[in-house]
Design a protein around this nucleic acid. Structure first.
Length: 277
DNA sequence: CTATAAACCTGCTGGC
DNA sequence: TGCCAGCAGGTTTATA
């Protein structure tokens, strides 16, 4: 599933190829891709110059200056420069004046596209939490966000209203790196633990970006390249395999309906001092 | 506020 | 070999 590092990888690849190009046409193949009509989307993007590509959490923003096209890939969405074979149909296609096509493929059809005027952006993202790699995200802010909450840390990290961009992979990896048990109540986290969690969140997201994403499901970048973060996962989808730090088998539980992976020794239920993983 | 569940989807897996 | 129930998960919406 594309999470922050995967969307950032896509953003960088698209920015390198598409910045400054003018949209020649937009074709909506699967009308469920947007609540808006093909005509409405066309009015917002066709003939306009793509100024830049931005990202907010897991949302990808095609910035045309006065208008925006926003894409969320959800589970299986892919943006590709090349068409797939005829057994797979794209949900929509954007064609640029250079002749470059951008296909939106999405097996499970959870992904969505929105077109809007740029002055609607702040309200569009009004409920979205802090950008975890921004200067705004500090250990102090994290502690404020955690304060008083009884919800499990894992559920807290997945909640996009608090911090934007983490999904199941990076939430599990961040908690492992911070040596925190996923079911710990968010509000029970102390100052040093919050500092550890803050550092761990930023570290796993940066590591994910450095590795050009985790290709655990169907993630590939627009040129079809896989990421490599899946090769260095510590706990995600490693149930029963030895912890890379202590050798204890990785444990799998369900937290707020999501499979959750952790090392029972490195991430104990109670606080205790351990060497840094 | 918090928790849980269903809905949206399709491909894959496990069990028989 | 074949069939099918069940699972995976990001987000929204509904319900307790």
């Amino acid at each position: 599933m594309p999470e922050l590092p995967e969307v950032e990888t896509i953003r960088r690849r698209l920015a390198a190829s598409l910045s400054g190009l003018i949209v020649r046409r937009l074709d909506v193949v699967d009308t469920t891709v947007s609540v808006q009509s093909e005509d409405e989307l066309r009015t917002l993007v066709v003939g306009r110059c793509l100024r830049c590509l931005r990202r907010r959490g897991k949302y990808l923003i095609f910035d045309f200056g006065a208008t925006l096209l926003i894409v969320h890939l959800r589970m299986t969405g892919q943006l590709l420069f090349e068409a797939e074979d005829s057994t797979r149909r794209p949900r929509c296609v954007m064609t640029f004046d250079s002749g470059t096509d951008l296909y939106f493929y999405d097996t499970r059809r959870f992904g969505r596209v929105w077109g809007l005027a740029s002055d609607e952006e702040s309200s569009f993202f009004a409920k979205l939490g802090v950008e975890p790699l921004s200067a705004e995200f500090t250990p102090t802010l994290l502690r404020q966000l955690l304060h008083g909450r009884r919800t499990p840390l894992k559920a807290f990290l997945l909640d996009q209203r608090h911090i934007a961009g983490m999904g199941n992979i990076y939430a599990d990896e961040a908690l492992f790196r911070a040596r925190l048990y996923p079911l710990r109540a968010a509000g029970s986290v102390g100052v040093s633990e919050a500092q550890r969690l803050h550092a761990a969140i930023q570290a796993v997201l940066r590591l994910g970006i450095d590795h050009e994403g985790a290709s655990v499901e169907s993630f590939i970048d627009p040129a079809g390249a896989r990421g490599s973060f899946q090769k260095i996962l510590n706990v995600y989808q490693r149930t029963g395999e030895p912890c890379r730090v202590c050798g204890t088998p990785v444990e799998r539980i369900i937290v707020s309906g999501r499979s959750t992976h952790s090392c029972p020794r490195c991430q104990p239920h109670r606080r205790r001092s351990r060497p840094t993983p």
